[in-house]
Amino acid sequence: MNRLSVEEGISRGTLANWRAEARAKGKLLPEADANVEGWTSRDKLAAVIEAAALNETELGDYCRRRGIFPEQISLWREACAMANDWDRTASARIARETKDDRKRIQQLERELRRKEKALAEAAALLVLRKKVAAIWGPADGEDE
């Protein structure tokens, strides 16, 4: 945009306003110095829509003018097609993760119950040992 501003003698602000107005009307206007990674999702969708009705020759010409490859248009078209399926895919993934989480929670709860039982048993044995020591005295080899 800097080069265009200097070449045409139009301020950057005016060019930016014109670009914003054109984008608001749905025109495909990626940044001039931006590579394809700099394109917005809106620009990519507009490119897919514009290229949808083109034959192979027209598509090649369109891509050369825009500085992109036909393969990129194909990838963007697939991404657009899958965009509406994301919720179904996400729901399935979330359901699978939830099921895995439930299994893990059940496993941890079983392990916790087992350890609590073992701890209670150890505590009961210590209490009994103290009672035995109090009644009959310490066993041979034990400290008093």
Rank of each mutant, 00 (worst) to 15 (best):
R66Y: 02
R66V: 00
R66D: 00
R66F: 00
R66Q: 09
G67I: 01
G67F: 03
G67Q: 05
G67P: 08
G67A: 02
G67R: 07
G67H: 05
G67E: 02
G67W: 02
I68D: 03
I68W: 01
I68R: 03
F69E: 00
F69I: 01
F69K: 11
P70R: 06
E71W: 02
E71H: 03
E71N: 09
Q72F: 04
Q72G: 07
Q72A: 06
Q72V: 00
Q72M: 07
I73Q: 00
I73G: 01
S74K: 08
S74V: 09
S74I: 06
S74T: 04
S74G: 05
S74H: 04
S74A: 14
L75D: 07
L75W: 05
L75Q: 08
W76S: 00
W76E: 02
W76N: 00
W76R: 05
R77N: 01
R77V: 01
R77Q: 08
R77T: 13
R77A: 10
E78K: 09
E78M: 07
E78W: 04
E78R: 12
E78P: 00
E78D: 10
E78H: 02
A79F: 08
A79W: 04
A79C: 07
C80A: 15
C80S: 07
A81Y: 02
A81H: 04
A81D: 11
A81L: 13
A81C: 02
A81N: 09
A81W: 06
A81S: 06
M82S: 10
M82R: 13
M82W: 09
A83R: 14
A83I: 02
A83S: 15
N84Q: 13
N84Y: 12
N84P: 04
N84S: 15
D85H: 13
D85F: 12
D85T: 12
D85W: 07
D85C: 11
D85L: 15
D85S: 11
W86Y: 12
W86G: 07
W86M: 13
W86D: 13
W86K: 15
W86S: 13
D87L: 12
D87E: 15
R88L: 14
R88H: 10
R88E: 10
R88P: 00
R88A: 13
R88N: 09
R88F: 10
R88Q: 11
T89Q: 15
T89D: 13
T89W: 12
T89K: 11
T89A: 14
T89L: 14
A90K: 10
A90P: 00
A90M: 09
S91V: 06
S91Q: 13
S91L: 11
S91T: 12
A92M: 09
A92T: 06
A92V: 05
A92W: 04
A92S: 12
R93N: 10
R93C: 05
R93W: 08
R93E: 15
I94Y: 09
I94P: 04
A95R: 01
A95V: 00
R96N: 06
R96K: 14
R96L: 07
E97W: 04
E97I: 07
E97T: 01
T98P: 01
T98C: 03
T98Q: 13
T98L: 10
K99E: 15
K99W: 06
K99Q: 12
D100G: 06
D100M: 09
D100A: 15
D100W: 07
D101E: 09
D101T: 12
D101K: 14
D101G: 06
D101I: 09
D101L: 14
